[in-house]
């Protein structure tokens, strides 16, 4: 068991160390996420009465756009000087490489989201103290990271790679975004048509399903 998890931790540690040194990912992605929220605020001209209905949407649009940017960065980083090539030359199982990269993306995105959340709460004026919101953010980010890591691995190999990731990523991740927005609406005190008891399992099922499928197909993707 440790034989499987050790390389995942080594990979995660390497990515964290790189990020601590350069700080480019968390800062640029965080600023970008903030910008998205600000632009939406002007575009929709949100009034205090509309907060509960609009804030969750703005929050998750900002998170998902920032997430795509973060994932593009984590794989581009591997690409310079052939870091991914070097990884694939080691006898580490491809599943472990996938999970290592997915965990790194997950941690960075979660960090950005946690930093942005109080800022959004102030700007958009909602309360963030909610277990539902915490669980939602963790589950949705896990889904983002797992599906996003797989598609990043494909997208970096293609022409026009910055474009290919969102084109592949957004249609597939859509249920997670819908679910996250609905749950956040509940968390900030809004009304939704179908209750918690369906959306949390939906996010859970999505995560579990793709945690099984993605490592398998990742090993195929990196064959060539």
């Amino acid at each position: 068991m440790t034989a499987f998890f050790q390389p995942i931790l080594v990979l995660l540690w390497k990515d964290i160390l790189l990020e601590v040194r350069s700080k480019d990912l968390v800062i640029s992605v965080g600023v970008f996420g903030l910008l998205v929220a600000v632009i939406f605020n002007f575009a929709l001209n949100v009034s205090p009465q509309q907060i509960t209905s609009l804030a969750p949407g703005i929050l998750w649009v900002a998170y998902s756009f920032a997430g795509v940017l973060a994932m593009n960065r984590t794989f581009m980083r591997e690409r310079e000087q052939g870091g991914l090539e070097g990884l694939l030359l080691t006898p580490v199982s491809r599943d472990a490489i996938f999970l290592g990269k997915a965990m790194a993306s997950f941690s960075f995105m979660l960090l950005v989201e946690v930093v942005l959340l109080p800022v959004f709460a102030v700007l958009l004026g909602f309360s963030i103290l909610s277990w539902t919101l915490a669980v939602t953010i963790v589950l949705a980010t896990l889904g983002f990271a797992v599906v996003g890591t797989l598609f990043s691995a494909i997208a970096v190999q293609t022409r026009s790679r910055e474009l290919m990731l969102p084109v592949l990523f957004f249609p597939v991740i859509l249920p997670v975004i819908i679910g996250a927005v609905q749950l956040t609406t509940v968390a900030v005190g809004g009304e939704i048509s179908v209750g918690l008891n369906r959306w949390l399992p939906l996010l859970g099922i999505f995560d579990a399903l793709f945690l099984v499928i993605c490592p398998w197909v990742f090993s195929v993707v990196t064959e060539e």
Partner: peptide, 21 residues
């Protein structure tokens, strides 16, 4: 390609790969 991460030291790079091996 060198397969090295430019923001890590030589030792950190080699230890990283050494752990994976």
């Amino acid at each position: 390609n060198t397969f090295l991460h430019s923001d890590l030291t030589c030792l950190e790079n080699l230890v990283f790969y050494g752990r994976l091996f």
